[in-house]
């Protein structure tokens, strides 16, 4: 980059600071930060099992299908698939009850699946909050060990 500050008369004092190199360096720094900092998207992944896959992925869907249903007052109906009727529990007890159930599940490579269902009036914040709590039980760093799956209502399943 050529500099032209007026030919530099002999003896002429130059009082301004030469900022061009400073700007150059700042530009390079900016570009370095641009390259180093890629945008990360923060996400929780919600599994929505297709009914086609359901049979293949879960050989025995009735064996121990953990289902969490959040009611309008944010209390929870919890069902472990073993007993007929779901147990009503307080939202704060979810983790305490779910942890031993999940730990009992076999870890033979397959992710542990927890089904979630919500009352239509439950705000989205609570939906994600519940999923977040369940995922927090995973011991791996990416929380991918436990999959949170959405329970699709029978009526919405595509007719085969």
């Amino acid at each position: 980059m050529g500099m032209s500050t007026g030919g530099g008369k002999p003896g002429g004092l130059q009082s301004e600071i030469n900022v061009t190199p400073l700007i150059d360096v700042l530009l390079v720094l900016l570009i370095i930060f641009l390259v180093v900092m890629p945008i990360m998207m923060k996400m929780e992944t919600l599994e929505v099992p297709r009914n086609i896959d359901t049979e293949q992925e879960m050989p025995d869907p009735n064996a121990s299908q953990l289902t969490v249903f959040v009611k309008p007052d944010l209390s929870i109906d919890f069902s472990d698939g073993l007993s007929e009727n779901p147990t009503p529990i307080a939202a704060t007890d979810l983790i305490r009850i779910l942890r031993p159930k999940l730990e009992a599940m076999s870890t033979s490579g397959n992710a542990k699946v927890v089904f979630v269902d919500f009352d239509p009036t439950v705000p989205w914040k609570e939906v994600v909050g519940t999923m977040d709590q369940i995922r927090g039980l995973a011991s791996d760093v990416n929380h991918d060990e436990i999959k949170v799956a959405l329970k699709v209502k029978e009526a919405d399943l595509r007719k085969q």
Partner: peptide
């Protein structure tokens, strides 16, 4: 949420 995964866009 606390337990999320971060991925590049």
């Amino acid at each position: 949420a606390k337990h999320f995964s971060e991925e590049k866009d």
